[in-house]
Every structure is written in C-alpha cells, then in structure tokens.
C-alpha cells in the first residue's frame, strides 16, 4: 500500500479518539480557563527537570506535545502494518461484514485508548505503570479483632473472590483516602466506608462462625522510600474501627 494511502487510513483510524481526547481540553486550548501551573521547584523530582508528575498540573503546551507524540506512535504502528502486503491481503480476504466489524472495533479500541475512562468499559485507556506517583507509598490494611481479642488479618481477595484480583482492596483504599484525617477513630454513624466494613465483617463472620469478629479496622501505613533499614513501614494510622453486631450473624 502506498505510504500516503496508509497514512491517510491511519489518520482516519485515530481521528475519533483524538476528538474524544481533545474535547475536555477545549476550554483550556481557547484560553477560557487558567493554564496549569508548573510544579514548585522544591517538590520537583530529584535529578529531573521540573515537569509536573500530574498531567493536570502541566502547561497545556506540554500536554499537547505529549498527546501529539502518543498519536504519532499509534499512526506509525498502523502505517507499518498497512504497508505489509500480506496483512492487507489477509484483511481483504475476509467477508465484507467481517472487515467492517473489524474496522469498527479497531477504531473504537483506539478511541478508548486515547479518551476512554472507567465509564467507557470495555474501551478504556490502558495507562499502566505510567509515571511516578507523588509522595511515599501508602499501604492500607483491613484487619479485625475476634471476640476473644485475637487480631486477624483479612484477605479481601479471599473474602469476595468474584471481585478479585484486588478490586476490593482498591475500593476500600479509595474510601479510606476520601475520609478526612480529622475523622480518624471510631465511627458511629453511616457513610460508605462504614457500611462497606460492616458488610465485610458480617461476610467474614458468616464463614468463621466459631471465631467471629467483634471489630473490623482500616488503617494506613507509609513506606518511606529513602529508608534503607527496617522497619520498612512507618507511621501507621488507624482510619476507622467499626464494631460488628453479633446478633446479625
């Protein structure tokens, strides 16, 4: 396939995704909103130039350049494949309906890569191991205390394997992060975190009737990355402890 034709087709494939990605930035592009401020020099990553870790903090020009590079990489890959006589012949040998379905699926996939969100499942952005999160890692833990007073570490994947791997952990982590630090400690009332921990506590007790939980707790601890000797985790803080009503088991 001629290079120009391949380029044109590649651009057509990525165009919907580009539009989807650009739409949220329209206001910033036309200058209606403020341009993101660069990161403060004092918090700049050590040994690197001061480019903000978060894209939302970067000047729009840098974000646009990055997106341009991303699009160019996708276009280049598509062009390389379209220039293969064998692959093009293979595609042309498919029934017409199959060819159309493949094109629609591929365009939707690319659109998801560029502009997808959780809500656009299953056509979402694949952005794994991208960048370095700010600050030191924080690890959340769910553990409990039995009526006999013994501590119990709760494996969330074992508790609800259907939602595994790790989705339940991330859910609890998000709820824990959303809870203001000033509210640490016992929680009398409702709230999604309270309700979730109560539900998990009752589920645990339904399987451990001989040694049920009396309390379930969410805590967080930090892992200082500049620490070269144990203990590796420091600053453990309780987020909330919830009592489990034994009469509901």
């Amino acid at each position: 396939m001629p290079l120009k034709t391949a380029l044109l087709i590649a651009c057509l494939f990525v165009a919907p995704g580009v539009v989807l990605r650009v739409i949220p930035y329209v206001d910033r592009i036309i200058g209606a909103s403020h341009v993101g401020a660069p990161v403060e020099p004092a918090t700049a990553p050590k040994g690197s130039i001061a480019i903000a870790n978060r894209l939302s903090q970067r000047p729009i020009v840098l974000v646009a350049i990055g997106f341009g590079v991303e699009v160019a990489l996708h276009v280049a890959l598509i062009v390389i494949l379209l220039r293969s006589m064998t692959l093009v012949a293979l595609f042309r040998s498919q029934p017409r309906s199959t060819r159309m379905a493949m094109c629609v699926l591929f365009v939707t996939l690319i659109a998801g890569f560029f502009g997808g969100r959780d809500e656009t499942y299953p056509f979402v952005a694949w952005r794994m191991y991208s960048g370095r999160p700010e600050g030191d890692p924080k690890v959340f833990r769910v553990d409990g205390e039995t009526r006999a007073g013994a501590p119990v570490s709760i494996n969330l994947d074992e508790l609800i394997p259907a939602i595994a791997p790790r989705r339940l952990y991330h859910l609890v982590e998000e709820l824990g992060r959303a809870r203001p630090e000033a509210d640490s400690g016992n929680e009398e009332g409702g709230g999604p975190l309270h309700a979730t921990l109560v539900a998990l506590g009752h589920l645990y007790n339904s399987r451990h009737g001989d040694d049920p939980l009396a309390r379930i707790r969410l805590s967080v601890t930090e892992i200082p990355l500049d620490n070269e000797v144990p203990p590796w985790t420091r600053g453990q803080r309780e987020i909330v402890t919830v009592a489990i009503d034994p009469s509901l088991n």
Binding site: N53, G66, E70, L73, A125, W126, R127, S130, R132
Partner: peptide
Amino acid sequence: AAAAAYRVAHHGFELFAS
C-alpha cells in the same frame, strides 16, 4: 502498545530519571 505509547509520550523522562 497503547500503554507504552502513553508512557513514552507523557512520562518519558520518568522512565529514566525517577
């Protein structure tokens, strides 16, 4: 490829210097 393209385009420097 999509995960890599995003990483290169938006976090290219952090690949090396972080």
